[in-house]
Simulated scan of single mutants.
Amino acid sequence: MKNLLFVVLSLLLACQSAKQPDPVPTPPVTPVDTVGRFANPLLTAAPDPWVTQKDGFYYVMHTTGANLRIYKTSAMSRLGQARPVTVWTPPATGPNSRNIWAPELFNVNGVWYIYYAADDGNDRNHRMFVLENTAADPTTGTWTDRGRLNLPENKWAIDGTLLQRNGQLYFAWSGWETDLGGSQHLYICRLTNPYTAEAATTRVRLSSPDFAWEKEGFGVNEGPEFLTHGNKVFLVYSASFCGTDLYALGQLSADSSANLLDTRSWTKSATPVFGPNAGNGTFGVGHNGFFTSRNGQENWLVYHANAAQGQGCGDLRSIRMQPFSWKPDGSPDFGPPKPLAELQKRPGGE
Rank of each mutant, 00 (worst) to 15 (best):
N231L: 02
Y170M: 04
T140K: 11
V285Y: 03
F283H: 10
N259K: 10
S97E: 00
P209G: 10
W88N: 00
V51I: 15
S207R: 14
I114V: 15
P347D: 10
Y115A: 05
G147S: 11
W112L: 05
Y116E: 02
A258P: 04
S183E: 09
S253F: 08
V108E: 00
I188Q: 01
W300H: 04
Q344V: 15
S174Y: 09
L235W: 02
T161G: 04
G289P: 01
Y170D: 01
S253C: 06
T26N: 03
L13Y: 08
P103D: 00
H304A: 10
P31V: 13
P336Y: 06
D159P: 09
V8Y: 02
T144H: 08
T292D: 00
P332A: 09
V111D: 00
W101E: 00
V302G: 02
R146N: 04
L11H: 09
S77F: 05
D255G: 14
F274R: 03
L316F: 11
T192S: 06
H62R: 11
L191I: 07
D119R: 09
W213E: 03
H229K: 06
A197W: 03
T44H: 02
L131H: 07
A254K: 07
E298A: 07
L68D: 00
H62Q: 05
T196Y: 01
G182Q: 08
M76R: 05
A118S: 12
I100Q: 01
M321A: 11
Q309R: 12
T263G: 01
Y170R: 10
L260H: 02
V24R: 07
L149T: 05
N221Q: 09
N40M: 06
A117I: 12
Q16M: 15
D245R: 13
G314N: 15
L131S: 05
I319S: 02
V32R: 00
E216P: 04
G312A: 13
A307C: 10
L68G: 02
A199C: 07
A341C: 04
